[in-house]
Design a protein around this nucleic acid. Structure first.
Lengths: 158, 158
DNA sequence: CTCATTTACTTGAAGCGTCAAGTAAAGTGA
DNA sequence: TCACTTTACTTGACGCTTCAAGTAAATGAG
């Protein structure tokens, strides 16, 4: 990749190690709380939450995949499971038969309403409260820059 | 969790969404590069790198698990695979038969030497270079605070 | 010295994500 | 209008992680 691989300085290494730990521990904390209290994964929550915020609680699979930061294939599997649990229905888009519309059922809406407060509390506890207001702005900027660098041009999901 | 769930402000939500995207995209980028160029996962790299930095290229499983931020069970499975590929050996600690020592073989050392430059380059590209020097320090502090909040007291691995 | 407990690790089954391959509808060119 | 391509999604197999249960060595109580 480079002839002379530039190693990391001490400062860079400290930041990198702190980031790696966060990358492991934070998803565990988020998934753990949702799994214990609601029996769903963080990704499933993102799917339900994305649906709940869509007009008519309905959205195309491909748009939902982007909202929830996942591949279409992953979403398809997850929606199948959510369908079995009665929280989501699928139907073909009448305007264009290639699209599939995911629809949040009343039970699914209820599930989001029940689950959201606990999830938000965990996010506050793990992310918002440990940081100062300035750090929250810093985090937004840092997060965006790293995301752009890691995924230049926002993925074409497979 | 709270009677009156405090929702997130716009600033908090922006930071949170940026963080969630980073949480998805960065591991994908890191795993992707290592998988393509070296045929190993990021976790496997962390295990090999942890071993390569240990005295005598030898370390107890439980210490290695903490170094690599993973459960003992996960590590055990991964070391089994690395053993099959000839990069790691296991032996019982002569001082205390309950401990297992993982030892990096010469082939394993060679693998780390081959793989490290490309991995470091990806870390530079995705994390270090997109940020200013100030942001790198901010990231270290933010990462530590979030990790502490998400995992109060540094896990007892299962 | 013996039995129970603790510690450190291993193992097998179950579930989720990814990848490659497949299907079906819509668009395109002759 | 008939094939060819593209788009949107689904499906099945495989690999990895987690969880629960198990093993084996060391420690501790009586």
């Amino acid at each position: 990749m480079e002839d002379q691989p530039r190693w990391l300085t001490d400062e860079e290494m400290e930041a990198w190690l702190a980031l790696v730990s966060m990358l492991i521990k934070l998803p565990q904390a988020l998934d753990g709380q949702l799994q214990r209290d609601a029996g769903i994964s963080h990704f499933e929550y993102q799917v339900l939450a994305g649906l709940s915020m869509s007009a008519g609680r309905t959205i195309r699979m491909s748009e939902l995949a982007q909202l929830a930061d996942g591949s279409l294939s992953r979403l398809s599997h997850v929606v199948s499971r959510l369908e079995k649990r009665g929280w989501v229905r699928r139907c073909t888009d009448p305007d264009d038969g290639r699209y599939t519309l995911a629809v949040l059922t009343d039970d699914g809406w209820q599930k989001v309403v029940e689950t959201a407060p606990g999830h938000v509390a965990t996010v506050r506890e793990c992310v918002i409260e440990p940081l100062t207001k300035a750090q929250i702005r810093q985090l937004r900027d840092i997060g965006r820059r790293i995301t752009d660098a890691a995924d230049p041009g926002g993925t074409c999901p497979g």
